[in-house]
């Protein structure tokens, strides 16, 4: 998808100083072959994400978006192609699977705060296991970061004791503790009600404005995609590759008033058209398989 590159340059000029976190996905193919019947999940997918960009990856459920995320995070191997982070190859020829690392941190669909650790222990986990900070320094930094994110007072609660919206915030803070270059979101707000979701979106943008990281965000919620993203990569259904890359030309910082702006509606219509076709294909495919 070369047409995307012009858009990257365009988006990049508006982005602030983030100098790290550019992802280049080049011709990635992923074929699952569980029982001899090869299933192509990702088909020659190429996508460039600029440093500090919020790239929303939109597509119907089960289209293979998560496969792509898992390849970047280093949970799964790829069949061919390559993925680079700031010019450095994560996986590619001769190296089928990237190593998971604290420069790319995933925020999981159902949340993955360790329920047996307090919020503070969760947030401090990264630097401690990496041996970057002593236990005390890590707790101190974690306390500070939690306070910045408005999470004071719940350091010693366990994740099971706080609401799911707050859990997501703690999880993002846990990721940011490691100064990651990229945050990978795997539909993290899927299970939240719309009221909480809107609060979460604003909180996420607030965090983003403070810590310029590249965000790779998978969703099938179009409103969420347009509200948050600099760009939308609309994916085809299985096998997955970008069908259309759409630049969201609403300037950041954004707040909830943009939802009612005419430009937002236009973008919504444009996206809906592209996505709907794929959703229908996915549905028919699902019926055949089922």
């Amino acid at each position: 998808m070369r047409s995307g590159e012009a858009a990257v340059a365009g988006a990049g000029s508006k982005l602030s100083s983030a100098s790290q976190g550019a992802i280049r996905i080049e011709d990635v193919v992923k074929i699952y072959d569980p029982e001899g019947a090869a299933v192509m999940a990702v088909d020659h997918c190429s996508l460039d994400i600029a440093a500090g960009e919020i790239c929303m990856v939109v597509g119907p459920s089960g289209c293979g978006k998560t496969t792509l995320l898992n390849a970047i995070a280093g949970f799964h191997s790829i069949t061919s192609g390559s993925i680079y982070l700031d010019g450095e190859m994560l996986c590619g020829p001769g190296r089928q699977k990237a190593d998971p690392g604290a420069d790319r941190i995933v925020v999981f669909q159902n949340g993955a705060l360790f329920p047996w650790k307090t919020n503070l222990e969760n947030v401090a986990f990264g630097p401690i296991v990496q041996g970057k900070l002593s236990r005390r320094e890590a707790y101190e930094k974690a306390r500070g970061m939690m306070a910045d994110a408005g999470l004071s007072g719940m350091e010693h609660d366990y994740p099971g004791e706080i609401s799911s919206g707050v859990r997501r915030r703690v999880e993002i803070v846990r990721a940011l503790m490691n100064d990651p270059r990229v945050l990978l979101f795997d539909e993290p707000y899927r299970a939240l009600d719309s009221l909480t979701k809107s609060v979460m979106h604003e909180a996420l943008l607030e965090i983003y404005y403070k810590n310029k990281v590249t965000i790779f965000f998978i969703t099938h919620d179009l409103e969420e995609a347009i509200f948050l993203g600099h760009r939308l990569a609309i994916m085809t259904t299985r096998p997955c590759k970008p069908k259309k890359v759409l630049e969201v030309d609403i300037p950041h910082p954004r707040d909830y008033s943009v939802l009612t702006s005419p430009r937002f509606r236009e973008l919504m219509d444009e996206t809906l058209e592209a996505v709907h076709e794929e959703a229908r294909k996915a549905f028919e495919l699902g019926e055949k398989e089922g």
Binding site: A73, G74, P100, G101, A102, V106, F108, A112, F114, F125
Partner: peptide, 13 residues
């Protein structure tokens, strides 16, 4: 849950 294992690897464990 596999997510916890993955999250820990992500965080550099």
């Amino acid at each position: 849950d596999e997510s916890y294992v993955r999250a820990a690897f992500c965080l550099g464990a």
